[in-house]
Design a protein around this nucleic acid. Structure first.
Length: 284
DNA sequence: AAAGACCACAACCGCAGTCGC
DNA sequence: GGCGACTGCGGTTGTGGTCTT
């Protein structure tokens, strides 16, 4: 004998909840408490599956939910927790009061994974090595509803609204360590160089230069070098250099071993990319 | 102005773990 | 110990809103 479905499917309503349904469910649970999801719909006078009621309550109607956008702190925490816990959303959610596993899962899938999506298999290379697209890692998430490539104006406007690592003092540079992930914000004129010592890691130089070429205002200039020799385009590179205008706050996320690095300097030898750790984290 | 593309998020579905009989 | 009910979790899908063309 097979498992009985959680509820009789016939005649039950599906899809979006109405305000009246929400009201009924909320009143019932406030009066009778959570639980007994199977019998709840009938008792509350709802033509819904018990699982649907439970989900609606947990993800939307509960009083202790935090409304509003995920903050930068929460985002950093999610990234950190995901690096150690993987897709165990309920466990991750337990560390973020007022946030639900569904909310975090959706946020990850729609915002963070797209940034993480910058890791790609190197085409034509079957040794499992990967490419990290630093340009895309650095771009803020797209706004809802946008499609395809942004217009230059929209791209510039969105970048100006970027809130990554806001810096109060223009001369200040902040570096935060996060289990091998360094988030670096630079908003002072100068340059920064990111070097990869590991052959398994490289930059998608084409994408990076394409992106740079789309910026008319010259707020960021990119040059690239392979083995110390500058190249103009194409291929992959072992290091990049970027110069920043004074009024162009920018954020770098890279994956190094926790050592700070200074504007205008190469990464210290101890701060080479830990490709294995990064790859396993990104692919987890 | 309209159509189509794309994204964010709500909701659904199937599976697995736990509990009680 | 076996079985079914219940619950919770994670993956996936559907829908509505927004933006571009």
């Amino acid at each position: 004998m097979g498992r009985r479905p959680c509820c009789e499917k016939v005649g039950l309503k599906k899809g979006r909840w109405t305000a009246e349904e929400d009201d009924r469910l909320k009143k019932y649970i406030l009066a009778n408490g959570e639980g007994s999801w199977r019998s709840l719909p009938k008792n509350a006078g709802l033509l819904r599956c018990g699982k649907s009621c439970r989900l609606r309550w947990i993800n939307y109607l509960r009083c202790d939910l935090v409304r509003g956008n995920i903050t930068t702190d929460e985002e950093n925490l999610i990234i950190k927790l995901h690096s150690t816990l993987g897709n165990r959303w309920s466990l991750i959610a337990s560390h973020l009061p007022g946030r639900t596993d569904n909310e975090i899962k959706n946020y990850w899938n729609s915002h963070l994974s797209r940034q993480i999506h910058t890791i790609r298999r190197r085409s034509g290379n079957d040794d499992g090595s990967v490419i990290v697209d630093v340009a895309r890692l650095s771009l803020p998430p797209r706004r809802k509803g946008s499609r395809g490539r942004r217009s230059k104006e929209a791209e510039t406007a969105a970048r100006e609204k970027t809130v990554y690592g806001a810096v109060d003092d223009p001369a200040e540079e902040r570096v935060s360590s996060n289990d091998g992930i360094i988030s670096k914000t630079t908003d002072v004129g100068g340059s920064a160089t990111l070097s990869f010592d590991n052959d398994d890691m490289s930059l998608d130089l084409d994408a990076f230069l394409d992106w740079d070429n789309d910026n008319d205002d010259d707020d960021i200039k990119v040059t690239a070098a392979t083995g110390g020799a500058e190249v103009e385009t194409g291929g992959e590179c072992s290091s990049i250099s970027c110069s920043f205008r004074l009024d162009s706050p920018w954020n770098w996320e890279s994956f190094v071993d926790g050592e700070e690095w200074e504007t205008g300097e190469d990464l210290p030898a101890a701060a080479v990319v830990e490709s294995d750790a990064v790859i396993s984290w990104l692919l987890s």
